[in-house]
Every structure is written in C-alpha cells, then in structure tokens.
C-alpha cells in the first residue's frame, strides 16, 4: 500500500493558507472584503521577510549537520542593525557601504563561530551561545545603551513601503534572495558539499570535501545572512533598540524545523524555511489580532508548534 506523503514545505504553505482563511472569520477579521484581505496577506508576507532572511543562515548551519545551530543570530541581528543605523545616519549615499559593513560584521562573527567549532571542537550550540553573549556585551560597551543615527529615506522606501503594484520592496527582495539561495544550495559545489557534510562528515572528507573549510564558510555565510537580516530589520522598523534581534532567534530555528529541514542535518530546503517563516509570522499576528493575553498567546504558540512538528517532524524509529 502506498502511503500518501506530503512534503513539509507544501504542508506548511497549505497550513498558512488555511490559517489565513480562518483569520478572516474572526470578529475583527477581513470577512468578505477582498481588498482588506489582500492588504493583510501582503502585510504578513512583508513581516515574514525578516524572519525568512535570518532563518536562511540558520537553514545552512542546520543542514551542515553535527548538531549545527546558530544561537548568535539574534545578537548579530541587533549588532548589524545598530551598525547600519549609525553608518547610514539618514544619508541615502551611505546605504550601500552600510549594507556591506553589516554583512561583513556578520560574516566576521560567523567566522569566529566556525573557528571555535571546527578547530577547537566546541559544540555549535554552546559556541554560538557564548558568542551571542560576547556580541551583546560588545554592543553594551560600544553604545552604552544609546545610539544616535537614523535610517535613510531610500531604505524606508525600498524595504517598508509598497514599491511596484502595491507590493512592498521587502517581498521583492525576498523573492530575489530565495532564487539566490536555491542556486547556492542546489546548483553550486558549495551546496552539494553542504548536504554531503550534513549527511556524513567522514564520508564527505573521504570523498575529497574539505570539511573544515566548509564549516568555516557555512558559519561565516550564516553570520553574513544574519547581518543582511539586521540591515533589513532596521530598515523596516526605522528605529533601533537593544532587543531588535533577540525575538528572531528561536523563531528562526522553529521556521527551519516547521519547513521540514532535519535538525540533525543533511536534508532540507530553503523553500521549507520560507514557508515556516510565513506560518510562524501568521500565527503570531493572528494571536495578536485575537487580542489574547500574553500568557494564552504563548501557550497556543507552543502547542501549535508541538502539533506541527508532531505531524511531520518525527524521526525514524530504531526498529527498522
């Protein structure tokens, strides 16, 4: 008998559509007003972009296996958001240098993570956790809790406002970005090697993959993507605050898991992560719209996550 299987990204997208449709039935939902529905859908997509970009780095790190995870992502987002904010300082001409700086800072921190993990054999979880403390500490030292700067008009225009046909620039950037991620993961040697080291590091090494270089590159790239996430996040909010990045940390891992990427590595896709980011953002905004108290919201989120991963996050049984 053939079992009906449904791939996790598709399941997540279906779930998102169902959730969204149900949200219309709420007392303060969009009801039958299609214009409002469209606006809401676009807005939720736009909010998903930031989580989606930050979770991209997380996806790469998790696919690389050996308990790969990046707990420094939140701190890196905060740091790079501050870097962007201070460097741009309201000046359109300095947006591009600031973008490069944000990506470079993120990559540097990722490289330190990778060094500790591959050369000093520190487990990724604690290494990145430690780095997140170090980065948070650096932010406090340099900024003493207050920053002066501003985003520039062009950032707000491109990231936060509708660009073409009422579609916000952030979504267009995301689509473009997703294409690049697909190319990177499916059409390059880096991508092939990434899945190879995620499946089995020993066989990968024996087949001529430079595992150390791959791990370094993966963590550096993940840091760079968090840097990009920080740049986009501050472009969206327009102001920077010390807690801008942390709320993204665990959702970025959850988005990867909901998207069907194995947390043990070697299997997954960025499409899944995108779908996961949309589902999580939708869920959060839905619970906010329903005006639930924080406590109930937290419980519902936890329970939903548990149900979601119960459906397709199950690992193989020991008995084969």
């Amino acid at each position: 008998m053939k079992r009906i299987t449904i791939s996790p990204p598709v399941a997540a997208v279906l779930l998102a559509i169902i959730l969204f449709a149900l949200s219309g039935l709420l007392p303060n939902g969009f009801g039958s007003n299609m214009l409002v529905a469209r606006a809401q859908a676009v807005n939720i997509l736009r909010l998903s972009v930031f989580l989606g970009v930050i979770a991209a780095g997380q996806t790469l790190v998790i696919i690389s296996g050996s308990e790969g995870i990046d707990l420094s992502a939140g701190a890196v987002v905060t740091l790079t958001a501050i870097v962007t904010y201070v460097l741009v300082n309201g000046n359109d001409g300095r947006v591009l240098p600031a973008l490069f700086a944000a990506i470079l800072v993120g990559a540097a921190i990722g490289l330190v993570n990778g060094t500790g993990i591959s050369f000093l054999k520190i487990s990724p979880l604690v290494m990145t956790l430690g780095m997140s403390g170090v980065v948070t500490g650096m932010i406090l030292i340099v900024q003493h809790g207050n920053v002066s700067g501003a985003v520039s008009p062009i950032m707000t225009k491109v990231i936060a406002r509708p660009l073409i046909f009422g579609i916000p620039g952030a979504i267009i950037i995301w689509v473009f970005f997703a294409g690049l991620m697909w190319l990177l993961m499916e059409r390059t040697a880096f991508g092939k090697n990434l899945f190879a080291i995620g499946t089995n590091r020993v066989t990968a090494r024996l087949s001529g993959v430079n595992v150390t270089a791959m791990v370094l590159a993966t963590y550096a790239l993940a840091g760079a993507l968090s840097g990009l996430g920080g740049f986009l996040a501050v472009g969206n909010t327009g102001v920077v605050f010390i807690n801008i990045g942390n709320p993204f940390l665990f959702p970025s891992i959850a988005a990867v898991a909901v998207g069907g990427t194995l947390l043990s590595g070697g299997k997954g896709s960025y499409w899944g992560t995108m779908a996961g980011a949309i589902v999580l953002t939708l869920l959060t905004s839905l619970l906010t719209t329903m005006q639930m108290p924080d406590s109930v919201r937290s419980m519902v989120l936890g329970a939903t996550l548990l149900i979601l991963i119960s459906i397709y996050g199950r690992q193989q049984a020991l008995r084969q």
Partner: peptide, 26 residues
C-alpha cells in the same frame, strides 16, 4: 514527545517551554 513521538529534542522542548512559560504567566 521526544522518546515516544520521536520528535527532535531541541525544537520539542522549545515548544513546551512556550507552553510552560505561558502557564507561569497565566
């Protein structure tokens, strides 16, 4: 959830941490 449903520990306990934290706040 981890042993009998065979879910991945980190994401499972992350989800339950929301449950428990929400309950505490409640």
């Amino acid at each position: 959830f981890v042993a009998y449903m065979r879910l991945q520990p980190i994401i499972t306990t992350y989800a339950t941490s929301f449950l428990y934290a929400g309950l505490a706040l409640f």
